[in-house]
């Protein structure tokens, strides 16, 4: 990068992030840091604000208050052009893969290479093969996304996220819908990348097995607030009842099974 900014000790830093939709507060005062080469897991139940948090970090949403630093660059006030420069340094794996259905698997992976830099087509071909090898999909270049399974789409999405050799990787539910073997493959891949290439990763998930397997740092979001954070061991030993209910998967507890504790009969009879 041309600008020489003092290198931040953190790959990602979020300070006091707040966001409401109408009167509903989705995120309130969320702050955390991610050091280079670490894997941060963001956990939390459905609707707790995890996806909203991730969308703020990638710059798709603007916060009401707070700052987000990626490699020391504050991104919440950047314009589209400056933002797209920062974005070239990170990769994102979307929940459903977000592949382009009109392009083949190979073209999908090559897309960031061909569109955002002047890479010769034969070099791009080589990179596509390398990245597909990485996710175990060699030989699938010429298929269309509609012809492969959901799990394979996700792995192609991973290959595409890695195409530009990012130094920060975001994954939205990377293992949802994958079989246990493929889950382990994706997990191992994430760990390998951070160890070998010094990549930092932020993974949003509620797959606890996978989370504890790869995390070096974890934060737990509940109702738009971080109620616990620390290393996997600290999280396991945290006595917070909400957290324990979540990581052990108890059906009822502090996170109520029912939406309201009103009398069930009364609610049924209400007009």
């Amino acid at each position: 990068m041309s600008e020489t900014k003092p290198k931040s000790p953190y790959a990602l830093e979020v300070r006091g992030l707040c966001r409401s939709f109408g009167s509903r507060k989705i995120l309130s005062d969320v702050s955390f840091q991610l050091k280079h080469g670490e894997i941060l897991i963001i956990m939390g139940g459905s609707g707790c604000g995890k996806s909203t948090l991730l969308r703020h970090i990638i710059g798709a949403l603007k916060p009401d208050a707070g700052e987000i630093y990626i490699h020391g660059t504050e991104i919440t006030k950047l314009n589209d052009e400056e933002l797209s420069k920062v974005r070239k340094r990170f990769g994102m794996l979307f929940q459903t893969g977000a592949l382009f259905n009109s392009l083949t698997v190979g073209e999908n992976v090559a897309l960031p290479l061909l569109e955002s830099s002047d890479v010769a087509p034969n070099i791009a071909d080589l990179v596509v093969k390398l990245k597909l090898e990485l996710v175990g999909l060699t030989g699938f270049e010429h298929l269309k996304p509609a012809q492969i399974s959901g799990g394979m789409k996700k792995r192609v999405g991973m290959a595409r996220a890695l195409a530009l050799d990012p130094d920060l990787l975001f994954c939205d539910e990377p293992t949802a819908g994958l079989d246990p073997v493929m889950t382990a493959v994706i997990d191992t891949l994430t760990v390998d990348l951070t160890k070998k290439l010094g990549l930092s990763a932020v993974v949003v998930t509620h797959d606890m097995t996978s989370a504890f397997r790869i995390a070096t740092q974890m934060i737990f979001l509940f109702d738009g607030k971080i109620i616990a954070s620390g290393t996997p061991d600290e999280i396991k030993n945290n006595p917070d009842p909400i957290l324990q209910q979540f990581i052990n998967g108890y059906p009822d507890g502090p996170i109520p099974f029912k939406l309201s504790k009103d009398d069930y009969f009364k609610r049924l009879m209400e007009p």
Partner: peptide, 21 residues
Amino acid sequence: TMKVAEEIEALNVMGIDPVKF
């Protein structure tokens, strides 16, 4: 349909301008 399937967001994240693309 591309918008709904997060494909347009994916373009943005890859630093590709959806208007041009």
